[in-house]
């Protein structure tokens, strides 16, 4: 077993549920299973390197490893947007299935090894909320001209509806919403949105999170560093991250129901987008995806693979499970 001692800068604070506290959990488990030989120390956003520069620091070899949501990398690696979160794409369990059994891992390595980075999926979580707004969004025309915060490829889709999209960091969103600098924002899971206090400054919460059916975070390891580890060490890290995926799914799923109820109790109007709105979003998504697939070869390849799997899975997904709203259907 190698002695591994890495600092792991994160792009989210360790206080944020599932989003930020998965990696600290993984680090604790690694210390436990390796009897302290694999010692990862997480660093809060900005404490070591800027929160949104983790990937390039790992790539350049300034740091051995780091932890981030992959969508932040799409300015550099367009396909990263898909591995981070794909609008109308794969849900957490489906994403794991694609990664492990449908060539996802190979495509991930093919995308990132040229940048000298080895990413390990280490925390996939439930859908995000689709947006907090100060006003009602009855039709997609209501989105026109609004100032909205969104990250990744979702941002480009929102821009299709005439929204002006910025990428503010999480800590500034509350104030921006409060002061009207933003008309709306998406950020993360309902529990995380609650931690950031959006319900105090925006009256309308929209679901479902079509733009991000799963949110996938990775432990980025510098490829040279990774290649320098022995098989046992690599296996321990990979297995613990896989456990981290199970932990993150469990933790993310466990907490969202109660918090949605509590939003309603605190006066938030929790709304779901109508079928027409969803259809419009889907149409815009297809246009944006086609455009990006044309622009970047790897993006096209990864997207095609994901969509192929989604199509293959469809008969099982639609017939093998009870419909998500079976309780409401029976009650009616």
């Amino acid at each position: 077993l190698d002695r591994v001692r890495w600092q792991i800068p994160m792009s989210f604070a360790s206080t944020l549920t599932a989003l930020g506290d998965t990696m600290p959990w993984v680090a604790d488990q690694l210390r436990a299973v390796s009897d302290g030989a694999i010692d990862l120390r997480v660093a809060e956003p900005g404490a070591l390197v800027p929160a949104l520069s983790i990937f390039e620091n790992v790539a350049d070899g300034n740091i051995d490893a780091g932890y981030s949501w992959m969508g932040y990398e799409w300015g550099t690696v367009p396909a990263a947007a898909l591995f981070g979160a794909t609008p109308f794409g794969l849900e957490s369990v489906e994403f794991l299935a694609w990664m492990t059994h449908h060539g996802g891992q190979e495509l991930l390595e093919e995308t990132f090894h040229p940048y000298n980075v080895h990413p390990i999926l280490c925390g996939t979580i439930s859908p995000e909320t689709a947006g907090w707004f100060r006003q009602e969004m009855n039709t997609v025309e209501d989105l026109q001209g609004l100032r909205f915060r969104a990250a990744g490829v979702g941002g480009e889709i929102f821009a299709e509806f005439g929204m002006s999209v910025t990428l503010l960091p999480g800590g500034e969103l509350y104030q921006a919403l409060e002061t009207g600098t933003l008309d709306g924002t998406e950020f993360s899971l309902p529990t995380v949105d609650e931690q950031l206090g959006f319900y105090q400054v925006a009256d309308y919460l929209y679901l479902p999170g079509w733009h991000q059916p799963s949110t996938n975070q990775y432990l980025y390891v510098n490829l040279d560093v990774w290649n320098g580890l022995n098989d046992q060490t690599r296996a321990i890290i990979e297995m613990t991250c896989m456990a981290g995926n199970a932990y993150a799914i469990a933790r993310a799923e466990a907490l969202q129901g109660a918090v949605i109820t509590s939003f309603e109790e605190r006066g938030t109007n929790v709304r779901t987008y109508s079928d027409e709105q969803i259809a419009a979003f889907y149409e815009a998504t297809q246009a944006v995806m086609a455009r990006n697939s044309e622009r970047d070869e790897m993006f096209g390849k990864v997207y095609a693979s994901m969509m192929e799997f989604q199509a293959e899975l469809r008969p099982w997904k639609e017939q093998g499970y009870l419909p998500r709203d079976w309780q409401s259907r029976i009650e009616d």
């Binding site: 900005g46 070591l48 390197v49 800027p50 520069s53 620091n57 070899g61 300034n62 740091i63």
Partner: peptide, 13 residues
């Protein structure tokens, strides 16, 4: 020496 690379990153920050 990678500490100096980190310093550049912090200037960029």
């Amino acid at each position: 020496m990678r500490i100096f690379g980190v310093m550049v990153q912090r200037i960029w920050g």
